[in-house]
Design a protein around this nucleic acid. Structure first.
Lengths: 68, 68
DNA sequence: TCCAAATATTCCCTATCGGTAATAATCACA
DNA sequence: TGTGATTATTACCGATAGGGAATATTTGGA
C-alpha cells in the first residue's frame, strides 16, 4: 500500500534529512517530542493525527487528498 | 491553516456524502467505529494516524505530500 | 576512533477506540 | 408545514497505549 504510515514515515524522514535538521529540532519546531518524530518516521500507525500534520507543516509539506 | 484536521475532516465528510454512504457503513468498510468517523469528520486532532489513512483509503482518497 | 545524531527505555497521567443505546438533527414527501 | 424515517451525534465503559521528558544505548559519518 502506498498510503501507509510506513511509506509516509519514510517520506518524512527523507524530507527532514533533505531540509537538514535533526529530529530534536523538528520536534521543537513542530511542537511535539523526539519520541513522536521517531515513531512517526518509523510508521507507527497510532500517532496522533493533528501532530502528524504539525510535523508535515513544519517541514513545508502539505497534505493533498487525491481521488484514486 | 489549510492543513488542519478540521479542514481535512470537512473534506472527508464531503467525500463520504458524495460517495453516498453513511458513517456507519464507512466505519464498517474502513474497519473502524462510528465514533471514530464522527471524530475524524469533526476534526479531532488526536485521531489515530493509521485509521485516518484507512478511512481515506476506503473513500478512494490518497494522501499526497506536496511541497509548499 | 570519536562524537553527534538516532533510537530505545522508563515513568506516568490522560485519552483513544469500539460497541451499544439513547438522543438529536435532517430529510423526504405529501 | 407536519409527520415519519433515515442519519448523525453524544454518552457510557474499560482496557490499552499515546507521548513528553529525561536518560541510556546504539548507530553512523568524517
Amino acid at each position: 500500500m502506498k498510503n501507509s504510515p510506513q511509506e509516509i514515515g519514510k517520506s518524512v524522514k527523507k524530507r527532514r534529512q533533505a531540509v537538514g535538521i535533526t529530529q530534536q529540532n523538528l520536534a521543537l519546531v513542530s511542537g511535539t517530542g523526539v519520541r513522536f518524530i521517531v515513531d512517526l518516521e518509523k510508521g507507527k500507525p497510532t500517532c496522533h493525527w493533528g501532530k502528524v500534520l504539525a510535523v508535515l507543516d513544519a517541514l513545508g509539506l502539505q497534505v493533498v487528498l487525491e481521488s484514486r
